[in-house]
Design a protein around this nucleic acid. Structure first.
Length: 420
RNA sequence: GGGGAGGUGGCUGAGUGGCCGAAAGCACCCGCCUGCUAAGCGGGUAGGGGGUGUAAAGCUCCCUCGAGGGUUCGAAUCCCUCCCUUCCCGCCA
């Protein structure tokens, strides 16, 4: 969230950011409540001050005549404070719904059509035959099964079978190995159910409650991404500034309701209620976050390059970028069978928007007062669509799929899917 | 699930009604001393918020000893509820 201080000082900037993001920010109501809250707070404190003085006097003099007045002051202060608290809660609730501002380099636009391609890698492969879709190939090879998954769990679920399951595991291993050994990330295995407080920390709550699965009768949510537990890893902490940035990589299944996406991407292994993802998370200082964000994006791109997949990088425009992000890039891999790009990664920098919610701070140097950290995350990568791009890019005219070189060491001797 | 112990500052840890936002130690910072290092000596070092201030600094007040509520003129300290940690027993992948 944004600080009250910032909103007080820059109400117009906050309003404008809200409009461009398509998320009306209740700035006026916030400023009004801020005044009300401070009024009550101030009155309560003035009474308390007086009360504390008298109370000390009473301790010395034991003057019983003071008691009645003290009792009265105590109760007035309490009332005043409870009003202040109620207003503050209302205020905090509104603050959680104010979208983040964005970096000056973010393109202004309303829809995804106004996103900007900032770079491309590779070219669309010419296979020499009409490419098939991954679900066509997957079902024919018996490595993907959507029909049985629907019987077991409903739509938007899948079984991966035999080399399909093996490919998924190989990719996870490969990505984790590259990020830990070559990019310097620390591997994390995290809880996959998290509290509401953690969801608020990453800004998945309160605004996006309908996007996540909630456990009945408990304050627990299935994680929509490993970003949630890993970003919250250091919640309520004051970190040593000299040890930043912290770099984490975490493999976890992710669960999403996909509310509002009815009818979209219903065929294939694209938009699932449950999917695997290797997530990159950084906690940085204020000064280095933009730079670390660019580097994190490159780390994710490196995986696509090693897999030999053609992709592009899009800078998200204001309207397509999201509530909490300060700046965001999407990585889209080319899927020849579907004849379109698939979003396989989304990399974002939040500045202190999440850190403020999760109360993640650091001390820039010894003795210096703490500051809110900056957080960054990005998929490195999301599995289903990466699998799709691989299957469609590496398919042969006979319907079998060549395993990319970098995955061979992880495939237990399988070099060609479908050769069984 | 049953029973016991416990949650205090960056860390260890004392504190059972006002003299406590908190002893002592560690760590760290500044200064002194020393040819250098170590040791020694002196001082400093929790977080959040309000008011004042053009801002920084400063001054000042309020709140915070796991969270919330209660008793009391006054709570780290007493009472209640919840959360968490830990030990023993039971159950169990």
């Amino acid at each position: 969230m944004l600080s009250l201080e910032f909103i007080r000082a820059n109400p117009d900037a906050v309003r404008r950011a809200g409009e461009l993001k398509g998320e009306a920010a209740p700035v006026d109501e916030i400023l009004r409540l801020d005044g009300v809250w401070r009024g009550h707070q101030h009155r309560a404190e003035t009474i308390r001050e007086e009360q504390n003085k008298l109370s000390k006097q009473f301790a010395e003099t034991r003057d019983e005549s003071l008691k009645e007045r003290l009792r009265e002051m105590a109760s007035t202060a309490k009332t005043e404070l409870s009003v202040a608290d109620a207003v503050k809660r209302e205020l905090d609730d509104l603050l959680l719904r104010v979208p983040n501002v964005f970096h000056e380099s973010v393109p202004v636009g309303e829809t995804e059509a106004e996103n900007v391609v900032i770079r491309e890698w590779g070219t669309k492969p010419d296979l020499g035959f009409v490419p098939r879709t991954h679900f066509d190939l997957g079902e024919a090879l018996g490595v993907m099964d959507f029909e049985r998954a629907a019987r077991v769990s409903g739509s938007r679920f899948a079984f991966l079978i035999a080399e399909g399951a093996r490919l998924e595991r190989a990719l996870v291993q490969f990505m984790l190995d590259v990020h830990t050994r070559e990019h310097g990330y620390v591997e994390v295995w995290s809880p996959m159910l998290v509290s509401s407080a953690a969801m608020v920390g990453t800004a998945n709550l309160p605004k996006f409650a309908d996007q996540a699965f909630k456990v009945e009768d408990r304050d627990l949510w299935l994680i929509p991404t490993a970003e949630v537990p890993v970003t919250n890893l250091h919640r309520e902490e004051i970190l040593d500034g000299e040890r930043l940035p912290l770099k984490y990589v975490s493999y976890a299944p992710s669960w999403r309701t996909e509310a509002g996406a009815a009818g979209k991407d219903t065929r294939g292994f694209i938009r699932m209620h449950q999917f695997s993802k290797v997530e990159l998370v950084k906690v940085t200082t204020v000064e280095t976050s933009l730079d670390e964000f660019e580097k994190l994006t490159r780390d994710a791109e490196d995986i696509l390059q090693r897999l030999g997949l053609h992709y592009n990088v899009l800078a998200m425009c204001t309207g397509d970028m999201g509530f909490a992000q300060y700046k965001k890039y999407d990585l889209n891999a080319w899927a020849p069978g579907l004849d379109r790009y698939l979003e396989v990664s989304s990399c974002s920098v939040f500045n202190d928007f999440q850190a403020r919610r999760a109360n993640i701070r650091y001390r820039p140097s010894r003795g210096a007062p703490p500051k809110f950290a900056h957080t960054i995350n990005g998929s490195g990568l999301a599995l289903p669509r990466t699998i799709d791009a691989i299957m469609e890019t590496y398919q042969r005219s006979d319907g079998m799929i060549t395993v990319p070189d970098v995955l061979k060491p992880y495939m237990g001797g399988v070099e060609l899917i479908g050769a069984r």
